[in-house]
Design a protein around this nucleic acid. Structure first.
Lengths: 333, 333
DNA sequence: AACGTAGTAGAAACCAATTACTACGTGTGT
DNA sequence: ACACACGTAGTAATTGGTTTCTACTACGTT
């Protein structure tokens, strides 16, 4: 079919072992032979076959990453830094998207197992316990996002929502806001629940009554409806903390649509610092979760787990940072 | 190491060939044996090894997709539909991101060759002619995006920018706009150049003088600067056609910042229908390029090329559609 | 001159599947 | 009763590498 290591060996009049040793820099080959092999490789346009490589060498250098939705602006940056780090560590990275569908999550996990990955970062919550056990049984390292307790082969990446939400609430408080509403996401999602709790805690810490909590859906539409509803509240909150940026955008549009000015009449904040937050008008006050760090740490975590004899799962913390935009300002009161 | 086909064969007291035949549904195995094998597979938790599979079977079922930047909101949807279609056709899909870097483009292409893909969709313009030839020499099918002439192993996916831009210009014209500016992208990028030309042609077709053309950079910043500059022009255009959505957002912010109201004083349009366009405030009048179609067609094109004996590259057309948002309206004059 | 020792290269087993080919038993047609 | 075909399952070669173990060469030492 294509050029193989045998063809190179024949053309250079050496053995396949020698060619392999040259290509893997084992340092077992003399300068002259090495040069000869390399030039032959170039001349013949030889390219290694990953499949044959992985099959023959017992340690398989692939990491996987499973995300719920590549179209969710949160993920691309994470994926990118994961891949970059994986490559730096000498791994090939493969990606699967589950589209929030448990069946596809199972397929994705199966794909990872078929590829014999050393580890997989699972960044979706639609995953069954059975699947998790199956991965553990096969000794595949796993890095979860805000999900699992740490165990032998599993580490967890924990985003510090608490601190992020607290920064937002404190900032609003400093700007004179006392009546602050919250627009939630999905009740089933741990990261969403945590944000809500963090909101309630932060409010209480400041001696404020946690204001109305509205139901959202993590999407624009839910935010829009919540915004419309908030506009009609009486007394109307002077600030709204939304569970994520997209919801915040929806809230803002809902408010504007109902005749409220943002931020003059009411301040709105988001979460995640997506591009949306930056480019919207007004730009959104939000919290930057260090996604680049998240992706990198995921790869690091998997590398560490899979290169230890008796691995010990760890918990990693991803910090977050307040970013002030144009959607918030001093309280009108 | 893990459970192999041999273990399954031994446990079921059949040969590996039989197990393989069951797993591949070749129809060469009797009902009873088949049932026995399947239950053994389940009992042992056997999972096939892609690498061994690909190595042993001569036809390798992998397709690749190379994009310039997964963070560019244009791509995730394309990638998703590409993967879905690839899976439907029985391929495994792998993704590489080049980050607009020619060196990484080369690495990405090498990765594809190492994986022995049957075909690769190249959705970046940072690709050297040498690389293209190398792929052709290896008989790897290629689907380009707005790039290459069609040849034996290469097809091209052509986005119909002309029609898209024409729809925009005509729409603005119908709304009374006569003085319409254009904010360009990168001069080197074919898709950008085409949009500019389409703008000029459409204007002339309507008997209008192509207005001022400003330089952008495809990013927010370039749009912002252009918006600021346009606000100062005299006479000021009543509409601005931006090369893409992000630029349009920048333009709008630049205009607002300079005291122009959008769309009351000046209409702005984008291109690509990213989420940004939808969620921004005002939402942006833009052109929807059918990305889902693009990804699907790319997979189809590769499948077709790579399963023909003497392949004949084709040109596929991706249509586009005007989407009216809040950033445009009737001319103030 | 005999011997030990690096350093280098080769032969061959092995990885986990696929698949062409072979063998076997059974049923059918003449 | 014999030959033939067919359906089913097994044998073994094959895929393109890695890696272990062995063998050879050249050189310095005694």
């Amino acid at each position: 079919m294509s050029v193989t290591i045998r063809d190179v060996a024949k053309a250079a009049a050496v053995s396949t072992a020698t060619v392999s040793n040259v290509l893997n820099n084992t340092g077992k080959v003399g300068r002259e032979t090495r040069r000869l092999v390399l030039s032959t490789v170039r001349k013949l346009g030889y390219i290694r076959d990953v499949h044959a490589r992985h099959l023959a060498s017992h340690d398989r250098r692939t990491l996987g990453i499973i995300v719920s939705d590549i179209e969710n602006p949160f993920f691309p940056e994470v994926i990118k830094s994961f891949e970059i780090r994986a490559r730096q560590l000498g791994y090939d990275a493969i990606l699967s998207d589950t589209n929030y569908d448990p069946r596809r999550t199972r397929q994705a996990a199966e794909r990872m197992m078929e590829h014999k990955v050393r580890g997989v970062a699972i960044m979706t919550s639609e995953i069954s316990l059975r699947l998790v056990h199956e991965l553990a049984r096969r000794k595949i390292a796993v890095a979860f996002l805000d999900l699992a307790p740490v165990q032998g082969y599993m580490s967890n990446l924990r985003i510090d929502y608490l601190s992020g939400v607290e920064q937002i609430v404190n900032y609003l408080h400093e700007n004179g806001h006392r009546h602050i509403a919250f627009v939630a996401g999905r009740p089933g999602l741990k990261s969403n629940v945590e944000r809500l709790q963090a909101y309630e805690n932060s409010m209480k810490k400041l001696g404020l009554e946690p204001g109305p909590v509205l139901r959202g859906d993590l999407r624009f539409e839910g935010g829009f409806a919540a915004g419309a509803a908030i506009a009609k509240l009486s007394p109307r909150p002077t600030a709204v903390v939304a569970v994520n940026d997209l919801t915040a955008v929806g809230v803002i549009k809902g408010l504007l649509n109902a005749g409220c000015r943002v931020p003059q009449d009411i301040s709105v904040t988001g979460f995640d610092k997506t591009r949306l937050a930056e480019y919207c008008n007004p730009s959104i006050t939000t919290v930057d979760i260090h996604r680049e760090t998240l992706g990198r740490l995921a790869a690091d975590a998997l590398h560490e787990l899979s290169s230890t004899v008796s691995p010990q799962g760890k918990e990693y913390r991803i910090s977050s940072e307040l970013v002030i935009g144009g959607s918030s300002g001093p309280s009108p009161q």
